[in-house]
Structure formats: structure tokens, C-alpha cells
Design a protein around this nucleic acid. Structure first.
Lengths: 216, 216
DNA sequence: GGCAACGTGAACTACACTGTTCGAGTTGCT
DNA sequence: AGCAACTCGAACAGTGTAGTTCACGTTGCC
């Protein structure tokens, strides 16, 4: 879905799925990498960055870029996918077992940097890609949050009076709201993870229960 | 800032500020109204609606529209201003005194319909207008929320361990997140106000305190 | 070394949109 | 009635973008 060679059609490739980047020439691989790097950077700075901007930032001709990515949407999709893969990798290294409250706090801490950095990549994707695609790419992250919430509910720590899906939305919503607040200078970026966690723990706590105060 | 006559310059008008719509001819007033109505509707449906779309929806020539609004940004600004005025009017009729928790619940209930309906008008404005302008137009609403939160904090009902500005952000963020969830079919629109309120009350509650369970 | 894959800039098509001009007609106001 | 304000559509200019083609130069790979 990301790579589209010029000379060769789909004939020599087993399928169009597996990105099929291995059998390319070395300079092509290098350029694809540069393009993705540049696109991630440009889109992170400005969700409306043009293909020309990205090509220039990658130190590559626009035509070369189109040689690897059929359309702008393709490129955005590739960048989003890549970003989510990086995110998932970072989150895989995070312990989300044990006490749900602490697990959530750890998850927020680990996610914040990524969300903070690549917030507008998501914005670009939301303007260019169909909602189902956005959802699909977020699947693993969604599952992860959902799992913690489910566990917290079963343990009686998290509330049971609201749709589980809404609690997941709450988590994502506050993360992204925090990004915008820091961008506008209304929130200290170094304090954001703490603020988000504190708000979320309270929001997810079962009514009637005392709100946990996590140790600093 | 909204009205721009054709024949007459600024000469006959006292200032360019006061919208100066009173001294126009009747048909002009009618058209301006139609345009604003149509623009509000179109932008609510699609934040990217073109000037041509809006003019057609208003039953008016494109040139006529440009006769009243110098640029697309001007039009968007006028629509946003108008929407916020309507919103403020609706909120003026809402009792925000008394118990902060109940006041917040009432405010959310009264705001939800408007936010739900005109969510993408705001999106359009965010793409076209400078952030300061968005902030300025939201001033009254912002103040209102801020006032309730301040009162709740003084009363010891709301938490004091997070920046007040962040709590305001939380309120707006969850409202808009709820809109997107309903649009995606993940949340029942009729249930939204309750869900938002319940989440917010918990989020704003002081740590260590029991979360209030508002009467249905 | 040789060949195919790859890169490149310039130029071109195509499109969608904003904003303007013009000439001619219509409507409201006095 | 008469005049200025207003409306209208068509046509135009300008801009920014996506995507393509071509002819030629370069690089990697066997």
C-alpha cells in the first residue's frame, strides 16, 4: 500500500501487500526512507504541508516521490502507519499489567511524547484518509487502552456507569487537548503527563469511590 | 467587520466597527441574513464548504455574497460570531448559580445542543482564522466555565491540584469529543449530555473526595 | 562493463477554488 | 418617477495544488 515501483508492475512481486521494499535497489530504499522521515517531520509541523515541501525537505525530486507513492494520500497513509508502528513499539516496552490506575498512568506517560510530537500527522490523516482507515491504524492502541479499562472495571476501580467506548474516547480526547494547550502556551509540556493522568484517573474512577492520589 | 458595502465607502459610516447593517436597503438586509443562514448550515455540514456552495444555498449570486463579505474568512468570522452570540444567548437563560456541580451539569446540558450542531463551524474557523480570534470570540463562554470552576474550587468541591485553565480545557475537550463520537455512531446523542456531565464531575472532583452522583 | 533500475528538473495538464470586473437588469426608497 | 443601491451571471485573472510526461543523466548490481 506504500510502495509503487516504476519499471516493474505487480508481476515480479508476490503480492502488493507486504510493502515489497526489500527487493528494491539500495538508493531507492534510502530515498524512501528519507521521504518518510521528511514527511513525518513536515506533517508534524504542518498538517497541510504540500508534496513539494516534503520532497524538498527529503532532498529528493518531486517526481521521485511520486515514483514511490502513488498519491499524496498514499504518502500520508504510509507516514501514519509508520508513526503508529513506532508508537506501538514504544508502548510494547511499557508495562501495562498490575494495578489499572498505575498501568494507565504509565501508558499516558509513554504515549504523551509521541502524541505530543506527531499530533498533526494525525490531523493530516484525518483530512485525507477515510475514518475507517484511521480507526484501523489505531486498532492496537485502542485495544491497549480498552484492555486496561476493562480490567479496571472488573477490579471495581473504574466506573461501570458509562459506555466503555466513551472512557476510551476520554483518554484520547484529553491527550490531544493537552497537546493543543501546550502548543498555545496554556500548559507546561513537562507537566502535561502528570496533569493528564490526574484528570483521567479521576474521570474513570467509580462514583462513590475516593479518587486515588498516585504517588509522585 | 462583517459588512462591506459596495457603492459607499466608509465615508457615510461612523466607524467600520458597528456592523453598520441598519442603514442598508431592505433587500440587502434580507440577503445578508440568507447568506448567514446558509453559511451556518453549510459550514455545519461541511467545514470545507466553498463560497459557491454557500451562495447557491442562500439563493444568491456569488458576486452578491462578495458584495457583503470581502473574503471567505470574513464570512466565516461572521458566522462564528453569530453562532457564539446565539450560544451566549441560550446560555444566558441558564442558571449557573448555586451548587457548582449542578451548575456545571446545567451548563453542559444547555451547551450540548449547540456544540453538537455547530461543531464543524468551529472547525472551519480554526482553519481560516487566527487562534487569537477564535479565543476572543469564545471569551464569554470561557469566562462562564471559568467562573463555575473557580466557585467550585473555593467551595472545596472541585480540585485545586491542577491549573484552572486545564480544567476549562477539559470541559471543552470532552464536549467536542462527544460530538465526534456521536457522529461516528459510538455514542447515543440523547445520552451524551449525561455522559459528559458524569465524566466531568468526576474529573473535576477534588482528590480524596467522594465523586458526587447527580440525581437523574 | 553493461544494463536496468532509478533519479531529475522542466514543462505540462487538470482541477478547484478565491476574488474581480463588466454590462445590463431589478428593486427599494423618497 | 427617478435615482441610487442592489443583484445577477458570465467571464476573467490569479493561485496553489496534484499528478504526469519526457529526455537525459546517474547509480547500483551482476
Amino acid at each position: 500500500m506504500a510502495a509503487t515501483p516504476r519499471g516493474a508492475g505487480d508481476r515480479s512481486r508476490s503480492a502488493q501487500r507486504p510493502a515489497a521494499q526489500a527487493e528494491r535497489r539500495a538508493d531507492a530504499r534510502r530515498n524512501i526512507r528519507s521521504i518518510l522521515d521528511a514527511a513525518q517531520l513536515c506533517l508534524a509541523r504542518d498538517a497541510d504541508a504540500s508534496v513539494a515541501d516534503i520532497a524538498k525537505a527529503a532532498g529528493v525530486g518531486r517526481v521521485t516521490l511520486y515514483g514511490h507513492f502513488k498519491t499524496r494520500a498514499d504518502l500520508v497513509d504510509a507516514v501514519l502507519t509508520r508513526t503508529m508502528e513506532q508508537s506501538d513499539a514504544a508502548l510494547d516496552a511499557t508495562d501495562t499489567t498490575g494495578d489499572p490506575c498505575q498501568a494507565l498512568t504509565r501508558l499516558v506517560g509513554a504515549s504523551w511524547q509521541i502524541v505530543h510530537q506527531f499530533h498533526s500527522v494525525l490531523q493530516a490523516a484525518q483530512r485525507e484518509l477515510p475514518p475507517e482507515r484511521i480507526l484501523a491504524v489505531h486498532d492496537r492502541t485502542l485495544q491497549r487502552v480498552q484492555a486496561i479499562i476493562d480490567r479496571g472495571r472488573r477490579a471495581g476501580a473504574f466506573r461501570d456507569d458509562l459506555p466503555a467506548r466513551w472512557l476510551v474516547t476520554t483518554v484520547f480526547s484529553l491527550m490531544h487537548a493537552a497537546v493543543e494547550d501546550t502548543a498555545a502556551g496554556r500548559l507546561d509540556a513537562d507537566d502535561a503527563a502528570r496533569v493528564i493522568s490526574a484528570t483521567l484517573l479521576a474521570a474513570l474512577t467509580a462514583p462513590g469511590r475516593a479518587v486515588p492520589t498516585p504517588a509522585p
